[in-house]
Design a protein around this nucleic acid. Structure first.
Length: 295
DNA sequence: ACCCAGGGTGACG
DNA sequence: CGTCACCATGGG
């Protein structure tokens, strides 16, 4: 099967999918770089809820294993979700021309940018503002348990992320009880705007700047949160989310070109173009692990 | 008690 | 346009 720009041997057996010889894929790199919040480590695998499905992902002696996963779900859901049609070898070759990025890519070699659900990503990154990753995960889990729909797998109950209509009728008090804090009103107001016809599904076919401006009409969505949504759910590779971490990292590695945020934006735009978001993820994952800029 | 976390908002100049 | 206090909450 043609995946990742190469001929990948895909094996379907006993309810799982096994990808042989796919080097550009590692669950730890994919799920520990802060792009998705509903995945957690579970033995040698990562377990997550996507839509109304549960999936386990592991890397075992060079193979990538997805379970439970049939052929139809693999093609319809997981190929787009894991960005498996994209040639990461080519992308990495281009970005590796820069020495800092070469090091970051060698460190996070199995990273991929997921294409997640737009609505869930929107609410998740509203929650992310001025917050820690650990607590972001807990809040999203609380909201899913309280407002999402339950489903069973192997005797355990899991909850999908609630849709806009469900959160639009939630109360501020209920969301505060989930730990959302002052973001509770942002979530409700955004949910109501989406229910009232905000064109969330149409943004991916707009220009990058146009889509970003539209996203920033929503309460709780500023430049950084908008870029996360554009990159992690709408396929805008030129989006380069600038947070406290990436500021420190960029100013550490490129002190002359990244004196301030504006210079940084121009620097990454001219240097990385449509791969800016990918560069950001490699740098984020590497810099955070190395505690770059922390004294 | 203080500062920070994948920031955004509103007020003020 | 730019700056800045404030925002709810848990962890260091």
């Amino acid at each position: 099967m043609l995946l990742n720009g190469q001929d990948i041997d895909v094996e379907f057996s006993r309810g799982s999918v096994i990808l042989h010889n796919l080097t550009d894929f590692h669950p730890e790199h994919i799920f520990e770089c802060g792009q998705a919040f509903r995945w957690h480590q579970d033995g040698d695998a990562y377990t997550g809820v996507v839509g109304n499905k549960l999936l386990k992902v592991a890397r075992r002696n060079g193979d990538v294993v997805l379970f439970p996963c049939n052929r139809e779900d693999f093609v319809k859901i997981w190929i787009p979700y894991f960005d498996l049609s994209r040639d990461y070898r080519k992308l990495k070759a281009v970005l590796s021309q820069n020495l800092v990025l070469q090091t970051a890519i060698e460190f996070g070699w199995g990273l991929r940018i997921l294409q997640q659900d737009e609505w869930e990503t929107l609410i998740s990154f509203i929650i992310s503002s001025n917050n820690g990753i650990k607590r972001i995960k807990r809040i999203i889990e609380n909201i899913s348990c309280r407002f999402g729909s339950p489903f069973e797998w192997e005797g355990k109950t899991y909850y999908s992320f609630p849709d806009a209509a469900r959160l639009a009728e939630a109360s501020e008090k209920q969301l505060m009880e989930c730990g959302a804090g002052y973001r509770a009103s942002y979530i409700i107001r955004t949910a109501r705007m989406v229910v009232e016809g905000f064109p969330l599904e149409e943004l991916s076919s707009m220009d990058y700047l146009q889509a970003k401006d539209r996203l920033m009409e929503l309460p709780g969505v500023g430049p950084k949160v908008a870029d996360c949504i554009l990159l992690f759910s709408m396929g805008f590779g030129q989006a380069f989310p600038i947070d406290v971490w990436i500021k420190r990292i960029m100013m550490h590695f490129y002190p002359d070109d990244c004196r301030d945020v504006k210079a940084m934006q121009e620097f990454v735009r001219s240097r990385y173009g449509n791969f800016a978001g990918y560069a950001q993820q490699y740098l984020f994952f590497y810099g955070r692990a190395m505690k770059v800029g922390i004294s």
